[in-house]
Computed example of a mutant assay.
Amino acid sequence: MSLLAPLSPAVAPTGHTIDDAAGVLEGRKFCILTGAGISTDSGIPDYRGEGAPKNHPMTFTEFMGSDARRRRYWMGAHLGWMRFHHARPNEGHLAVADLEQRGIASGVVTQNVDGLHHDAGSQRVVDLHGRLDRVRCMDCGQSYARSAIETQISTQNPGFSDLVDEDMVRPDGDVEVAEGIDFVVPSCDLCRGILKPEVVFFGEFVPGSVFQHAQALLSQSDALVVAGSSLVVNTGMRLVTQANKRRLPIVVINRGPTRADQVATIRIEGGTSESLSALRHAVRDSLA
């Protein structure tokens, strides 16, 4: 089953402003749903934004079914990890954390795997697609810190990291690499089993318990704000559908069309860093 669904046709600009969004959200506690667009200002590219890499990410079936594809994945993932790991929260992440700390936002559900909401200080974070900083053995279930696996890879593949091309880092921390390069794939210290980052690959199901946590956060909210996501991934759109069924106000902030445009109460065409920062201050003003 694919996690992806097609975008609806582009809609005309609405002319909505941050003040319009603040007016709709005034007096309401809202849940924030974020996508790759919120992390672009931290140096992590968007799959579908301008300048995004064109290659499709590796699927779960490919990763689990082929030694060669698994080897290629870990080669690219290792090369991309340093830039990905050193990314820092931007003003959008900080705005989300501030809104939560002031009790205005109920929390954040993110489709990203970069952990930047945690780094920004958000306390109630649902990582819909997992986090890259953890790795799990698919055979025995042992969990590892990504840093430990990176140490193993560096030790077994001295000099390999010199091949990195930082301009090719993808949103999932992967990098496209040339074929024919010697590389030792990391394995579980306990059982020598297959290691996989604790993220949801394309074609893989989001764990039911994780989605239930996202639903619970939305159920405690009076509105939904979508920031930096086209909502092509079905798990995010399911939350929008639930909010729409409850007749909750839906504010969408994104560059380019989204699948929620036709049900959005407010639709703002713009970047997430500046828009969420402005919303943070506008909502504060409306509560003064």
Rank of each mutant, 00 (worst) to 15 (best):
E100N: 04
N90M: 01
R146E: 00
V109A: 13
R102E: 04
S147Y: 02
L116Y: 00
S147H: 10
C140L: 07
S106P: 01
N90D: 01
S143C: 15
H117S: 06
V125I: 15
S122C: 15
Q123H: 13
R170N: 14
Q111R: 05
D114R: 05
T151Q: 12
V135I: 08
S106Q: 09
E100F: 02
Y144V: 13
S122R: 04
V109I: 12
S154K: 10
R170H: 11
L132P: 06
H85T: 00
M168Q: 12
I149Q: 05
L128V: 15
A105T: 01
S122I: 07
G121N: 06
S154C: 11
P171L: 04
S154N: 11
L116W: 01
P89Y: 00
E150D: 11
I153G: 05
H86A: 00
R124I: 05
R170S: 15
Q152Y: 09
D133Q: 11
H85N: 06
A87T: 03
L94K: 08
M168A: 13
D165K: 15
T155S: 13
V96D: 00
E91R: 10
R134C: 09
P89N: 00
G159F: 08
D162T: 15
H117R: 08
E91C: 03
P171Y: 04
R170L: 13
H93D: 02
I153V: 12
L116P: 03
P89E: 00
G107N: 05
Q142P: 08
N90K: 02
D165V: 14
I149T: 09
A87Q: 01
R146Q: 10
T110R: 05
E91H: 02
A148C: 08
G130H: 07
A145T: 10
S154H: 08
S106E: 06
R134P: 06
D165Y: 10
G92E: 00
G121D: 03
V113K: 02
D133M: 08
N157I: 11
A95H: 02
Q152W: 09
D119S: 13
R134L: 14
R170Q: 15
D139N: 10
L163R: 14
V135T: 08
L116K: 03
A95Y: 01
Q142S: 13
N90F: 01
G103V: 02
T155I: 06
V169D: 03
S154M: 11
G159Q: 08
M138P: 09
R170C: 14
Q101A: 14
A97E: 00
H118C: 11
H117P: 06
G115A: 12
T151P: 04
T155E: 10
D167A: 15
A97N: 02
R131P: 03
V96Y: 00
V169T: 10
Y144G: 09
M138H: 14
G107M: 04
D119H: 12
L99C: 05
V125M: 05
S161L: 11
D127C: 13
R134T: 14
V135H: 04
C137N: 07
H118A: 14
C140V: 13
V113T: 07
G92S: 02
H118F: 01
N112K: 11
P158M: 07
P158D: 04
D127N: 14
A148V: 12
C137W: 02
